[in-house]
């Protein structure tokens, strides 16, 4: 068995043997080779010496302020610098677009309440028309200052086509 293991093939395995990451048949074969090969025994010792020094290398601790700097950089990237990002813009403008659309529908609905010819989609009907009696358009929720655009959009995006939207704006205003 050990005659088939040349020094050339033994070398990469020596790396593993030296740091204790070699088991089974490969280990048996390598130890057989080592018993008859002084050069490979010297190599194994050299491997051991180097890994002992490297394992004892004093760790370079990250400076205490680094995590805060990374956090600030990420906050800046997803906030202010996000203005340069078209996806960010889309996210911010989507509620505005949705608001304008609904305002148009509400206005159309109010100015022609007697006309049965105007038909709204069921979602708009339950959500917007249901709130109409209190005198404010349902779109008001989009203009509340304490609702972030992302929260509103995520609320809309997360609900499936069959979910009722009635309860969602209330949750989002928290």
């Amino acid at each position: 068995m050990d005659e088939t293991l040349t020094c050339e093939r033994a070398k990469p395995l020596l790396a593993r043997l030296a740091d204790g990451a070699l088991d089974g048949a490969a280990r048996v074969a390598l130890e057989g080779h080592l018993a008859g090969c002084a050069a490979c025994r010297v190599e194994r010792e050299a491997q051991r010496e180097v890994l002992t020094v490297l394992r004892a290398r004093p760790a370079a601790e990250a400076p205490p302020w680094l995590a805060a700097r990374i956090s600030a950089e990420i906050a800046a990237e997803s906030g202010l610098l996000g203005l340069a990002d078209w996806r960010g813009w889309t996210l911010r403008l989507a509620p505005l677009a949705a608001g304008l659309l609904i305002a148009a529908l509400v206005w159309g609905g109010l100015s022609s309440t007697s006309s049965p010819g105007v038909s709204l989609s069921p979602i708009v009907e339950t959500w917007v028309m249901g709130d109409r009696t209190d005198g404010l358009p349902a779109t008001a929720v989009f203009w509340q200052s304490d609702v972030s655009a992302d929260t509103l959009l995520m609320t809309v995006l997360r609900s499936g086509p069959d979910d009722t939207l009635e309860a969602q704006p209330q949750d989002a205003t928290k």
């Binding site: 020596l14 790396a15 030296a18 190599e43 050299a46 180097v50 002992t52 020094v53 394992r55 004892a56």
Partner: peptide
């Protein structure tokens, strides 16, 4: 495996003084 083997082989002469003076408390 072969990269680690060759890396340690090349490092061995460079780290000679450290091999001879093992870390006391640094370990």
């Amino acid at each position: 495996e072969s990269r680690i083997f060759r890396a340690r082989q090349r490092l061995r002469p460079l780290l000679e003084p450290l091999v001879r003076a093992p870390a006391a408390a640094g370990g």
